[in-house]
Design a protein around this nucleic acid. Sequence first.
DNA 1: TTTAGTCCAATTGTCGACAATATGAGTCGA
DNA 2: TCGACTCATATTGTCGACAATTGGACTAAA
Lengths: 227, 227
Amino acid sequence: MNLKNPARQAPITTADKIFETMQHEIVEGEILAGSKISEPELAKKYQVSRSTLREALNRLEKCHLIERKANVGSRVVECSVQGLLEIYQVREALEGMACRLAAQNMQDDEIAELQQVLNAHGNEQQLKDGIAYYQEEGDLDFHYRVILGSHNEQLIKILCGELYHLVRMYRCQFGMNSPRATRAYDEHKAIMYAIADRDGELAEMLMRRHIAASRKNIENKLEKESE
Amino acid sequence: MNLKNPARQAPITTADKIFETMQHEIVEGEILAGSKISEPELAKKYQVSRSTLREALNRLEKCHLIERKANVGSRVVECSVQGLLEIYQVREALEGMACRLAAQNMQDDEIAELQQVLNAHGNEQQLKDGIAYYQEEGDLDFHYRVILGSHNEQLIKILCGELYHLVRMYRCQFGMNSPRATRAYDEHKAIMYAIADRDGELAEMLMRRHIAASRKNIENKLEKESE
DNA sequence: TTTAGTCCAATTGTCGACAATATGAGTCGA
DNA sequence: TCGACTCATATTGTCGACAATTGGACTAAA
């Protein structure tokens, strides 16, 4: 079950469906990171023509999941620690700005909804304490709403359309199950208050620290694993 | 004469060439902003098949110059004041982060080159005082080097590959000829010093203010024109 | 006059085949 | 044995044709 993604429309054409299928398989690692994409092979696998498959590949490239070279072909992106670090740096900058704009541009009812979402997560969290998956969905949900609250189409397009699935891919492949759930939840609340107070500067700083903390947490974990 | 773009490789396939041609025509406004893209018509115009043209359209969509709807077609993006504002907000966030990372990651010889570039611009500027075009090239050149200096592949891909031409499109269509040339030049120097001092925090703030000032300058100009 | 429905023309999506290019095995010569 | 060259094979790029869908013109009924 896919969680709702406000930036995507329902799949219309068959290329849409192949795109979504492959996107899912790459994110989940069923198609291995770094592996070569063979157009004839996959066209046969999904029972479509190469034209349709190539259309799907173009969209996968748009969301940074594969890379193409002229006359050579496509490869699934590699998931490196360096790459993870880079993604988080981009997110820190963009979501920080989104948060500042959200404090400036969100409607009152949007803020009320954001608060309700957080409350719901708080209640759920006590029930399902320790079950990380829900927290992750809740985390994505919160970040999504803030990004949408920026009311900046470019920002939304980049974060929700072009970077979102790459972030998910890293989460899956590095097996991140949000080990700082309660802390993250409190940080979300602090961000929400800053937005409600229309304090854009503080909201941006809190969001940046929140993402940076998440990044450091992952770095520490990977470092510990490699020992 | 196109200025060098470090993020692009030379055109290999015919789709590459069509892409570059159309990109240029859209940026310069020869293909009107907001106009509908007719695949059969353009395929005939450029003497290629629709497949090849569609490949080019996919790349134009990747750099945000056109928008596609399933079963309906493509349109060139509109250039609105709102859109301009949004682009500058994204740039402020991303180039600010790039500048912070540049202070942290640039090699000493890269910094030396950056300084040389600025000096060259300073000398040229005195000679060609008032001629804005060169300054604009110089401006792009400076920003480019800082972005590359971040050594963050994702950041480089987004700024130099996906947003660069949209920025150029706005510059062309709104007829921006950098009316604050000397001031901008001094700001560039201040940024360069912060990078040389390895002061990432200051470097980020200076870059953000630099871009915000540029944005406000444009806003004022447009406001004055509409009176 | 307005609104709903139908049909037609044009556009987009998909397909299979051919042309151009890269990869790798094999051969020859130093 | 090593390196460069040749050639065959497989993959990617491009093409033209067909199928599916959309948007608009036209008709007819309320």
